[in-house]
Nucleic acid binder design. Sequence first.
DNA 1: GATGAATGAGTGTTCATTCAT
DNA 2: CATGAATGAACACTCATTCAT
Lengths: 190, 190, 190, 190
Amino acid sequence: MRTRDDAKQEALFNATVKLVNEIGFVSSSVAKIAKEAGVSPATLYIYYKNKEDLLVSTYVDIKVFLSGEFLKDFDPSLPIRDILRRVWFNMIACFSEYPDRFRFTEQFSNSPYASLVDKKVVEKYFEPIINVLKRGIEQKIIKDVDFDILAAFIFYPAMNLSKSRLGSGLELSEEIIETAFNLSWDAIKL
Amino acid sequence: MRTRDDAKQEALFNATVKLVNEIGFVSSSVAKIAKEAGVSPATLYIYYKNKEDLLVSTYVDIKVFLSGEFLKDFDPSLPIRDILRRVWFNMIACFSEYPDRFRFTEQFSNSPYASLVDKKVVEKYFEPIINVLKRGIEQKIIKDVDFDILAAFIFYPAMNLSKSRLGSGLELSEEIIETAFNLSWDAIKL
Amino acid sequence: MRTRDDAKQEALFNATVKLVNEIGFVSSSVAKIAKEAGVSPATLYIYYKNKEDLLVSTYVDIKVFLSGEFLKDFDPSLPIRDILRRVWFNMIACFSEYPDRFRFTEQFSNSPYASLVDKKVVEKYFEPIINVLKRGIEQKIIKDVDFDILAAFIFYPAMNLSKSRLGSGLELSEEIIETAFNLSWDAIKL
Amino acid sequence: MRTRDDAKQEALFNATVKLVNEIGFVSSSVAKIAKEAGVSPATLYIYYKNKEDLLVSTYVDIKVFLSGEFLKDFDPSLPIRDILRRVWFNMIACFSEYPDRFRFTEQFSNSPYASLVDKKVVEKYFEPIINVLKRGIEQKIIKDVDFDILAAFIFYPAMNLSKSRLGSGLELSEEIIETAFNLSWDAIKL
DNA sequence: GATGAATGAGTGTTCATTCAT
DNA sequence: CATGAATGAACACTCATTCAT
């Protein structure tokens, strides 16, 4: 018998990300995604249970991928500010390098599909960063506030900045990224 | 297309916001929206050119409404920090009071429809706040950085905080809002 | 606005009966039925909630129609044997005149759709015949056995005879019908 | 196509009968039948030419099986009434013991597939009974009418009685079966 | 102004069957 | 012999929009 083809699954993944970005969730039909991936719609159902499974799986895969990018050259022995600075630069670089995947997660997490994802599974991959923040709080370097408040001043600004710059086509210079990180650090540091 | 019966138009507006939140953009069909509003699908086309017009108009209307809420008790004679603090509290209160409208804008602005909105028109309503920031920069109270960077540490944290708290069902206490505003202020103040 | 078109509903009814007979339940798709009726598949869903509704409604309509045919010239003042004889002849004539409707009910009642029909509703239309049988039992003219046993020797033989003759293309002569009725009467009479 | 593994063929036979009864002809796809039988859809095509072949073969196999059951303890030396009485009891017992196979034949024979079966082949297995009836006619014990009329008062009542009782969940007591046979005998005897 | 009827095009999904291993 | 992968065609059904009243 034929064997499962990783190339096909990857083609479906790429086609999904591409189409959702080009024409949006609403218009991204199974037929169009399959066509973009160069397979029959029926074939899609060999690799995914249904459309929901395709979208949720794609989202989770991207999230795992992004966490890997964010944690590139992660070195817990560095000072906390340096660690976060590296993560910050990684995030911005990642969003600029993989804007499609980034935008897919933005669309996805604002859709009703979002509630279908087990957040625990995804959060696990971001744990190293969370631990750094915890350490920072213990060492009285970072303000002792809930994690979602810290997140609102670290991750979301990076995302929103990337989004607004990607949208307007402007480049995010090294300098601007540094400046923005300083605001982030000023927000959370004690 | 706009014509007379305001009650019908309002019913359509409410139905659109409600349905998009309940079942998402993808599933919100013209037929369902019309039914929810208690009118015929054909009637919808008297008030709106087509579905796109319905969604975009609804978005713009909400944005205008939100700007009014954000600027409640706006008093330019107060110190800049106090002005922004009031805006901050207004935003959080507004998101918590009108979660449907808030979530609609989130879904909408992450969809391809977003590009159909003339940002100038919407931004106009937020000008008073922008002017405050400009004044703050001139007076060396606020860091002299691009507006979108400031926005990334004022508006988006408020939105993301509201979103994450709304999603998890947690309440945002007065104290937490105050704390979060302090982070925001620390980020942008000189 | 346009008004509901009885001609269309009738066309759908006829198309359903015709197609189910020609190609069977399995192959009778909504698209084919709509095409046969000369309307769009979407139009079918204005007149029927879904395919199941179409088939069940068609079945019930036929059953009501058949009961009317069976009871033609029904005269309760006649001797019981004469009443049943007339019903018997009516049945055979009806099956031969409307073989499509008859065969539809045969296919339907042997399909899983059958369980969706409220038997009470259908049986109501056959009550006059049932009452005749009851009277016959009371008057010691007919054997005192359960109704389904009597039915198995009155209605089903008529149906099966019709079916086997229709299938083989043979005519059912007046004489043969009379003969068969005699067997039926011999079976149930005391 | 038929080849070796009898266990697989039997599994397919059972799966077909089971599924057609549980979900009907319409929903019984090759994929589901194969899954139920624990084999690959492709394997099914080793044992059967196509779906039609599978269904027709299953039907014929059941018919042969049923004929065997009907003729259990068949003793042509007994009086004709006793022979038919035994067949009658065998039929009822068989339908109650193998309701799935019985219902399969009911569904099948009311579908367009029925016309694909060579009736001669099937009838052959029921010949002993037919011969008894012929003898009964010659001996002036049974009415001299066409065979299909006799059948309509012997076999079909038994089937319909079984069907209605199976459907309603009621048991068919020894006494009721005896009673019903008496009606059958009254119908056909001279 | 307002409506339910009407539809061609599209939706997500499953189908019977064949292919490559 | 046996298989899961693969698919074009079909499935039931819904879509945004227009039409006739």
